[in-house]
Simulated scan of single mutants.
Amino acid sequence: MSVAALLAASLVSVTSPQVASAANTFTNPLSLHGPDPWLKYFNGFYYLATTTWNQTITMRKSRTLGGLATAPDTVIFRLTRPNGAGTMWAPEFHLLNGPNGQRWYLYYVAGREPFNLNTQRIHVLESTGLDPMGPYNFKADMLDPTQNNTWELDPSILQLNGRLYLLGTFFNGSQPNFIRPLSNPWTASGTRHILSTATFGWERVGGAVNEGAEVLQRNGQTFIVFSASHCSTPDYKLGILRYNGGDPLNQSSWVKSPTPVFQRNDANRVFGPGHNGFFKSPDGTEDWIVYHANSSPTQGCDINRTTRAQKFTWNADGTPNFGTPVALGARLPSPSGEPTG
């Protein structure tokens, strides 16, 4: 082989991995109007749903995480019921066992029109098959069997010790998280119990708020990551509960960390990071967090909060380490196992 050929071969071997690495990256945001994001990877695609603040539930679909930024918002359901006709917030879709086998159950918040916060309640749809984008049919209003005269927000699902629970938040003078047992994905089997209240100063900026409870399970441990302080402040942030055994309906079965686990990063111009979800990389080897945040400390709590995602790791004691929120536009490696072409 000539010297020129050897040099060319050497250049190819050095530069090719770098080119592949550069191609397999993405930047935040994943949606410019994306509060309360919920993101899952399923059967080769990412699916993203966020608050729309109107009468529709929409979803984006993409083979790559970065592709969600330009994927269209497809309407998958229109709200028509009088007691849940609009102001759609905080959609989450969970693959659960129903009477016809596994189905997607899409939980969301909606109320009467014109908007009245006091009418916001949790509702649920059921898919006809295994496509996260539906079609869906309305299944039930997720009202508390004995305390249905107050609004409830931010639904999520906990599966623990073979049982099913609904998580959410309500108002009782302050705003605590609740947990309610379910007999199936759409039916309560008991009333709500308080899961966590705003007890620390970092949970009480702008109001005493715990909301957006999200489940994270690994190696036999169960955590609930929740949003704290009022969403209109730049100090909206994440806290964490750890399950220590016993009845999950008892507040004493959960231990709250005395410090937040994810919060504003002024250097990176990230304010109010919260209302998160979790998803796995395509090859199942990485854990990722999706959340919304603002780029200004005065931006507030509206439809202009942007959807962002980043990888997180685990501490030696088995607790999650979310690090610090990264700046918009920072180029990040894509989730492991994504297609490169």
Rank of each mutant, 00 (worst) to 15 (best):
G134H: 11
E203V: 02
W38R: 11
L241T: 00
T340Q: 12
A49W: 01
K237N: 14
K237Y: 00
E126G: 02
A71G: 12
T70G: 05
D283F: 06
A8W: 11
G284L: 09
Y136V: 04
T80P: 00
H94V: 08
L117F: 14
M133L: 11
G111Y: 11
G34L: 04
G67P: 09
N244Q: 14
G168K: 06
P72W: 09
H292V: 04
N268R: 05
G246V: 04
P35I: 02
N161H: 14
P260I: 00
T27A: 13
F42T: 05
E126S: 10
G134I: 08
G67V: 10
S156V: 07
G245P: 07
L117H: 13
T128L: 14
V290F: 02
Y46C: 04
L249W: 02
N268S: 11
M88Y: 02
T25V: 05
T319G: 09
V209H: 10
N137D: 10
T87R: 14
P155H: 11
M133T: 14
W38A: 12
N97A: 14
A140L: 07
N184A: 08
F279R: 00
T25W: 07
T259E: 11
G212K: 02
E113W: 04
E338A: 09
H292F: 12
R218G: 02
P325Q: 10
G207E: 06
E152C: 12
Q251K: 12
T52K: 02
L117G: 15
I240Y: 03
E286C: 03
F278K: 01
N276F: 01
S232E: 08
H230S: 12
Y105E: 07
Q102T: 07
R60Y: 01
N83H: 09
E211R: 10
N161D: 15
G168I: 07
H275D: 01
R269W: 03
G323D: 07
D73P: 02
F312L: 07
D36G: 03
G134M: 07
R103L: 05
N100L: 12
S156A: 15
S257N: 08
